[in-house]
Design a protein around this nucleic acid. Sequence first.
DNA 1: ATAAGAAACAGGAATGATTATTGTTTTGGA
DNA 2: TCCAAAACAATAATCATTCCTGTTTCTTAT
Lengths: 134, 134
Amino acid sequence: MSEKRNFSAKREAVYRAISTLGSHPSAEQIYEYLKADIPDLSLGTVYRNLSVFKQNGKIRSVGVFNGQERFDSDMSAHSHFVCERCYAIYDIPFTAEMLEKSIREQIEREYGAEVKSHSIVFYGICRSCKKVNC
Amino acid sequence: MSEKRNFSAKREAVYRAISTLGSHPSAEQIYEYLKADIPDLSLGTVYRNLSVFKQNGKIRSVGVFNGQERFDSDMSAHSHFVCERCYAIYDIPFTAEMLEKSIREQIEREYGAEVKSHSIVFYGICRSCKKVNC
DNA sequence: ATAAGAAACAGGAATGATTATTGTTTTGGA
DNA sequence: TCCAAAACAATAATCATTCCTGTTTCTTAT
């Protein structure tokens, strides 16, 4: 009842493309993928809807790699592996609680990848911004 | 002995600026900071040297936030907290091994920040790229 | 059903961070 | 000192993303 409807077919197509593609696509990749079925789709529409979904908490950004922002519709707790060469992004079903024991070895064994480094970033509102209270 | 010398005063200035500033600066911020002392410094020189340092493993990228890449000269294992409002970046002296117990509460208590989410990303070379072996 | 207002859209221009290019200056070794 | 390589300034070019304008589609109340 309290669910707001998505009014637009194109908006829903953008959302579905992310999970269908499953490859943590960029805006451009989503656009290219959908253009086949929706010839009058515009890249601006993809960008606009991506930012709508981000604000809704329906998708999240995995980060910017090789100059392009990459998106994920899977909001469950999981990590990612980013290939530094081809910028493929793989889901890693590890959560923070499971990280303590030899993550690298596990990832390398299960994904055949060579982990060179990892980054842990927290997002939120810092102390000084909380003071401003806008 | 095997240490390669930095041939350029400007190159060294760029490196020192990152640790002096300590705020995980962007290329632009480094440039603005140095321009006072080095009026004939060019932004291109900052970018060029940043990529040299990245390849050398002397600095690392914390990520791209608000469209700008942010850099860190502290190569030791630690995490970061990114303010979603002002894009300040704070060092978090937690490593992966310490993550399992109530990270959020600890960060909130010690930094007065409100942690809304976190992201864990691994970097390396994926299985299919390793096959190509270039 | 339909008119009015709101939301969504396409197309294209604008922005802005980063990268590439070109010609010049500096550097360190022969 | 001289030469080749590295570094540089200045500026043009890229390219992902955002913004703008006018148009279309949707929603709701009449």
